[in-house]
């Protein structure tokens, strides 16, 4: 554990809580991609199956359970509790375009051809593209509420901090997880364009972010 990793996990948690509170307090999931949230729930489910096989630390176990619970709670709010506020017509990203290549790649490129390893690899690859339905939705509607942009900012910050964590671990422990690092870098690239808009539009302006 190092400061980048801890800060990354905290940003990830903050992002998820921001989204959950936004939906809960506004009683609405307008502008939120339910598909991205379902993908994140699948990511956590397939990655954290090792909860049943290895014990790493109390921190590790608690965070995994919290991420799982919060991601399912988010999906529940979007598709059940506040489903009448959900803009399904704007959440039109075709999931098979992500799932088919990700499933294929996780069978081809993994550390061991075992069910748990393939599912772990699948979760890493899927996480790297899971935000695409949300970004697609913002591009389609041309705007995002500022609270949604804060969510995306913390999610992007989490990814950037994980890269710092890997640089740190490489230099201090010689640790290098090729699958996680390559996917993590790809994932972070998706946020760069958004970061630019966030700083220029949201932080300097007020209210919604509108695309140029």
């Amino acid at each position: 554990m190092n400061i980048f990793r801890l800060a990354g996990d905290v940003c990830h948690l903050v992002a998820i809580i921001i989204l959950l509170l936004k939906i809960w307090r506004s009683r609405s999931c307008a502008g939120i991609s339910g598909k991205s949230q379902v993908l994140f729930a699948i990511v956590f489910t397939t990655r954290y199956l090792d909860l049943f096989t290895v014990f790493i630390s109390p921190y590790n176990t608690i965070m995994k359970v919290v991420f799982l619970a919060l991601s399912y709670a988010t999906v529940y709010l979007i598709y059940m509790r506040f489903r009448n506020t959900f803009n399904s017509e704007n959440d039109s990203f075709r999931l098979e375009f992500l799932l088919v290549p990700v499933i294929g790649l996780s069978f081809l490129e993994n550390y061991a051809f075992t069910p748990l390893e393939i599912l772990w690899t699948f979760s890493i690859f899927l996480e790297s593209v899971a935000i695409m339905p949300q970004l697609f939705m913002i591009t389609k509607t041309g705007e995002a509420e500022s609270i949604t942009t804060h969510y995306l900012f913390f999610l992007g910050l989490y990814r950037a901090l994980y890269i710092a964590n890997w640089v740190w671990r490489y230099h201090t422990e010689g640790f290098f997880d090729q699958i996680a690092v390559v996917s993590g870098v790809v994932q972070t690239i998706f946020y760069i364009d958004f970061f630019y808009l966030y700083v220029t539009k949201v932080l300097r302006g007020r209210g919604k972010m509108t695309l140029p």
């Binding site: 590790n60 965070m63 550390y111």
Partner: peptide
């Protein structure tokens, strides 16, 4: 598999 690193990251 003993070659696999423990996946301690979230």
């Amino acid at each position: 598999d003993e070659d696999l690193q423990t996946k301690d990251e979230l």
